[in-house]
Design a protein around this nucleic acid. Structure first.
Lengths: 225, 225
DNA sequence: GATGGATTTCAATAAATTGTAACAGTTGAG
DNA sequence: CTCAACTGTTACAATTTATTGAAATCCATC
């Protein structure tokens, strides 16, 4: 069974411990952050399956943190609000949070919501947008400026991986393991070929691809702004 | 007996609880959302048999929510309006709602309307039209440019699924599970045969089928404009 | 149980993608 | 500036996938 990584974000250490106390015994791997900035830094370099994000925090509040996370990640986010806090929940859900829960909550409610959000996010087919470039899994289609860009399955998968992990550098080896599988027996040069084709097709469509799909010399490739 | 899932959408928690109090004892499975955005997100990833949608909500009102839901789903929708609210109900029903009910309502009226809408929707047979191509479930008939196109039952079902889900790519596996059933033991190539026959017959009738029923190489087929 | 249409399978062919190897071009450390 | 290592490009071979027609099977109906 898959172990889910949950990122807990709250300025109160005590609350973090309480959340972990609820989640760890259920098999969730918990990572704790005491500020929005720390959470963003974590997510930029690591993967999480879910974020539990407190709204009321000093420096940078939960909504702002949520907004910034959404600029580079589609990780499911559950907002944690205190009863009586006069925050506009609807506004928050619009920013991109997936659900919210009100403190104080009991263990079963917390777990139920987490499971619901995870279940929803697992089956969800991604639809990503980046500077006008749309990558739609359900339609298996890439669009820019209104017209379709025809990509082969491999090209489509590679582009999707980059879009899902902006700014992260992938070595050719990593790309092969992720997209071809562990026991694939593929030359690293093959990745170059696909990258070349992706660049060509997107450039053709007028998308400033060279600005985004970048070569990191001696390491691999990354999608960066 | 089938358990119906009802999606309740209202910005007031109290109203959601009240509705659930009425519906849950009658065997309806209730899902509650506090905003139109949350409701749309839910429906994009989950199934519901009915939506009870409050008109007066901040941010995105019920009509707008209804309109957006209709862009991807045919789920029956009952609008909930407050007495005295000066909304144009006729206008709303045109948008695609199936019925409406005025607050305050009593339990029996609510239940009666829900049952009526569900009964109607269950018996409802689709009739779709696409660029002059008419697919009529009640008559089990397909027409183009005035004359009938004779399709076998399987062909008819496949075409119907595509018309009901424009732009969505179906893998052969998905088509088999959806139209043959989970435990069907059918070769994937069989789908190709049916697709070939559908294409042949529609092409024969003069319909520009190749523009619509498209092969998505390495993935499956889709109905796209 | 024979008939005829519907459905499914199969195999040959066609088409497209993917992988490879060779080489040219580029980069950056020393 | 030089060189070794890395990256980009190209053409083609290998592989995978789609299409098609024909044959086999299924199945309701007479």
């Amino acid at each position: 069974m898959k172990v889910y990584t949950v990122l807990l974000v709250d300025d109160e250490k005590r609350m973090l411990d309480l959340l972990e106390l609820y989640l760890a015994p259920k098999g969730y791997h918990c990572v704790k952050c005491e500020s929005g900035v720390a959470a963003i830094r974590y997510l930029e370099n690591n993967k999480a399956d879910l974020v539990l994000l407190d709204v009321m925090m000093p420096e940078m509040d939960g909504w702002e943190t949520c907004k910034q996370i959404r600029e580079f990640s589609n990780v499911p986010i559950i907002m944690v609000t205190a009863r009586g806090e006069t925050t506009d929940v609807v506004q928050g859900l619009k920013i991109g949070a997936d659900d919210y829960i009100t403190k104080p909550f009991d263990e079963s409610e917390l777990l139920a919501r987490i499971e619901a959000v995870l279940r929803r996010s697992v089956g969800k087919q991604a639809k990503l947008e980046f500077n006008g470039l749309v990558w739609d899994e359900a339609q298996h289609k890439v669009q820019y400026a209104g017209h379709d860009i025809f990509l082969t399955p491999k090209e489509f998968a590679i582009l999707g991986l980059f879009l899902k992990n902006p700014n992260r550098v992938f070595s050719r080896e990593q790309l092969i393991v992720t997209l071809w599988g562990y026991n694939a027996n593929t030359e690293e040069r093959t990745v170059d070929s696909h990258v070349k084709n992706i660049r060509e097709k997107l450039r053709q469509a007028g998308f400033p691809i060279d600005q985004f799909l970048q070569t990191v010399w001696g390491v691999g490739y990354k999608w960066g702004g």
